[in-house]
Simulated assay, not measured.
Amino acid sequence: MFEKPTATPALVAHGGNLHEAAQRYGMAWETWIDLSTGINPHGYPVPPVPATAWRRLPDDGDGFAACAARYYGAPDAQHVLPVAGSQAAIRALPALLPRTRVAIAPLTYGEYAPAFAQAGHEIAPLDVTHDALPDAIVHAVVVNPNNPTATHLDATRLLRWHAQLAARGGTLIVDEAFADAFDAPQANTLARATDRQGLVVLRSPGKFFGLAGARCGFALAQPALLGALRARLGAWTVSGPARHAVIHAFEDSAWQRTMRVRLAAESARLVALLRAHGFAPHATPLFAWVTDPRAPALQDALARHAVWTRRFDAPASLRFGLPASEDEWRRFEHALAQAMRAIG
């Protein structure tokens, strides 16, 4: 007989639920501008997928992990595990770590707290302004840059925290899902340090490369921990077509350089637009975040113009991704002006 699960996995609200918004507001899905996800709207142009990628099981001999190690700057392929989106690792990792107290920022990517709670850990709030972590903290999760607040911590502080946790037998998990979009992305990553005990870095090509639908991510850590994670997740975690797309994206350095310049310019345009309406945005190259007590009303007012954003409640705030075209920019600018007048 199978044991009945002790807890049901929590479902977390995310952006990208455009069909739900279209149904709620009674407007066709195709008419909407989706600014709710922070995914690059100018995604990598994946070359045609060979038939063998569809017909054969994914083969670890294809050099996929080694390609990711080169791109991210990890020590070698043994320190990289491809997973079905970093989400798969987020849900599986807590069960592999000793049950204790884990520090997670009150406002960050929402999957971490329920994953650790389900695995029996105690959740404590993480204050990212502290140089030293409280003695009672054994594990910590840092999303860097943070989603949605855009807070970016330097590698020196993170390595200092890691040393504190490692001395307690703990683990630091650093989620760098949005790190690729910055200029010189390897300058502040901890990928190169993942040969250290108690350090896990999660990366995703879904955001910067706009390949979220590939459901591909990477866990970077010591081989022993990755072996345990692989045993839990099972075989063939990333499909052949996804591997094909991501390898091409990682090896296309010219596209990466051009796209980082483009995203920096578009992020500056988004920040300027929000400031013109009285907001004080915090931004990464892929999204901007604003706090305002009128956030629920503003999200609703924008939705009535078929513009979908991501809302947070504590504090009341909105996250805006980048429009995909000049036509979307014009529509968004008009919708924002109309929405601001509507909410007063």
Score class of each variant (00 low, 15 high):
92 A>E: 02
83 V>Q: 02
284 T>M: 08
233 L>F: 05
98 P>L: 04
44 Y>F: 15
93 L>G: 00
311 R>F: 11
319 R>W: 04
248 H>N: 13
99 R>Y: 03
138 V>E: 04
128 V>F: 09
83 V>G: 05
113 A>V: 07
292 D>M: 10
226 L>M: 06
114 P>N: 10
66 A>K: 09
243 R>D: 14
250 F>R: 09
280 A>M: 12
208 F>P: 00
235 A>N: 12
12 V>M: 13
113 A>H: 09
137 I>R: 07
130 H>F: 09
133 L>D: 04
130 H>N: 11
25 Y>G: 02
51 A>K: 13
6 T>S: 14
116 F>L: 07
60 D>A: 14
1 M>T: 13
324 A>V: 01
175 D>A: 13
176 E>C: 04
289 W>V: 05
166 A>M: 01
292 D>T: 14
311 R>Q: 15
215 R>E: 12
321 G>W: 11
73 G>C: 03
106 P>K: 07
124 A>P: 04
331 R>F: 00
254 A>G: 07
306 A>T: 14
241 P>E: 15
24 R>I: 07
224 A>E: 12
320 F>G: 01
58 P>Y: 09
82 P>S: 05
318 L>H: 03
122 E>T: 13
4 K>H: 14
170 G>T: 01
277 H>N: 08
105 A>L: 10
288 A>V: 02
71 Y>V: 04
270 L>I: 04
157 R>N: 07
56 R>Q: 15
20 E>N: 11
4 K>G: 11
23 Q>H: 13
32 W>Y: 06
193 A>C: 09
248 H>P: 03
219 A>S: 00
222 Q>I: 08
